[in-house]
Design a protein around this nucleic acid. Sequence first.
DNA 1: TGAATAGTGTCTGTGAGACAATATTAT
DNA 2: ATAATATTGTCTCACAGACACTATTCA
Lengths: 276, 276
Amino acid sequence: MKEYNSEEEFLKDYDSSIFDKLSMTSDIIVISISSKDKSDYRRTDKKMMSILLSKRNDYPYKGKWCLPGGFLNPKTETLEECARRVLKRETNLSDIYLEQLYTFDGLNRDPRMRIVSTSFIALVDKNRLKSRVEYASWFDVISVNEKNNIVEITLSNEEETIIFSIKKELRKGSTDRYNFITKKNDKIAFDHDKVILAGIERLKNKINYTDIVFNMMPEYFTLGELQQVYEVILGKKLLDPAFRRIIANKVEKTDKMKTGEGHRPSYLFRYKKNEN
Amino acid sequence: MKEYNSEEEFLKDYDSSIFDKLSMTSDIIVISISSKDKSDYRRTDKKMMSILLSKRNDYPYKGKWCLPGGFLNPKTETLEECARRVLKRETNLSDIYLEQLYTFDGLNRDPRMRIVSTSFIALVDKNRLKSRVEYASWFDVISVNEKNNIVEITLSNEEETIIFSIKKELRKGSTDRYNFITKKNDKIAFDHDKVILAGIERLKNKINYTDIVFNMMPEYFTLGELQQVYEVILGKKLLDPAFRRIIANKVEKTDKMKTGEGHRPSYLFRYKKNEN
DNA sequence: TGAATAGTGTCTGTGAGACAATATTAT
DNA sequence: ATAATATTGTCTCACAGACACTATTCA
């Protein structure tokens, strides 16, 4: 083997083809909050999480739904830049909250070849999306039910309902980490069912010790609306006074009011940074 | 474009060379607890974290220290399997606690070519490592000091001291997530300085709401020892009664004692699963 | 005996959970 | 007036922080 005396010299000779290579993708679970129309004039809108899915036009998994994603161009971009490029294409927005979620790399997750996918969570305020998305469709997260370590998730857009379930199997030697095993899944492509579950769980875990939720809120909101968002994400009702104590130093009251709702109007609040 | 009528038909024709490809590696920050010899017969050993580093024999970064790692074989293994293969080689152990940490993918993190690295944390009880590691060396984590969002980490083995510092720059639009920017680093190869910081922070964050710490403990331990491990990882002193309350339902008392320490002997405890 | 760690008791303040009470609007 | 949500008050209980005290060993 040749002896090199400097890194430059070594690199000049380096043949990058000696290692087996593979392709990577960035896949994104875009989460936002949508409102179901109120049935009663004085009731507030029911809020739910929604996620963005695209219908696959080509093989593999033709006709199934998948998360927005794209192949990494290894010469020019990072995985996060790749994700932003995809998001720009899908939503026409460039400044979306993005956070690396997990790298999925099962040997057969893509039937074409070995593809490793780094997934991201994107959180967005739905009001910012003016134009209807062309290829993608928003699915409401109707329910997330966990029983005996099996999670069943129900998604629905206007035309279609998707139900899939995943078993969370305790990892050997751990008391709190799980392998995800698909139990039932007819309509989601690749392993994106697992990405969706991982994303929903990450959001649920982080909502209580970070401020990420405000990435899904409009600039002005009532505390009732904010509380509903927490309730939807956490999957449980919260008590009003407790909730207000918790978020008190994360928001600031404005002098604006939300009126015309058939009941007592409420002050509009705004996200307030800092001050822990 | 040819029309396909089934996924099988499509795959038969599929040319996987149309996308640019790249190489991946798994890099592992192996963390364990070591004890400094007691100077006074009645004082307890001082505990510290230690991490495993290898000296690079080849370019690039020849002569610098790096984390154990290796190239992924895309045909045969997952990233975690790749990490376990490396760990087996370095420590001769197969059943080490392993957790995916983060995927690092800066465009120039490796001067040879584009290489994306998925990093893992491994936690191990040092007593299980009988034989001295051949190529790698344990470095004690002497200090982790954060001031004005700059973290300075000092590592040391018997012969060498490594000091590096990283700036944690608040990410745009976030209040709790940071980009890592190397400020000073002469001795750590690649971006492994950032992996080390990410690993130490992950451990610190998870110690309070998981049981991962027991992966670094021997089967029998005193509560004093366990408390020291918590203190080293959290970087602060804890109060005895509070600590005992917190871990009370994670451990069970045995009838064994630890004696001969120059002071009152203490009961040995053992990790107790479940019962939250 | 003295220095050191082991282990327990208990007071206090903080904060979440729970429930109650009052306020205000559109129909 | 009524139904609905908005907003605040307050009681209680759990628990972490703090400090004090007792126990036990080896040189």
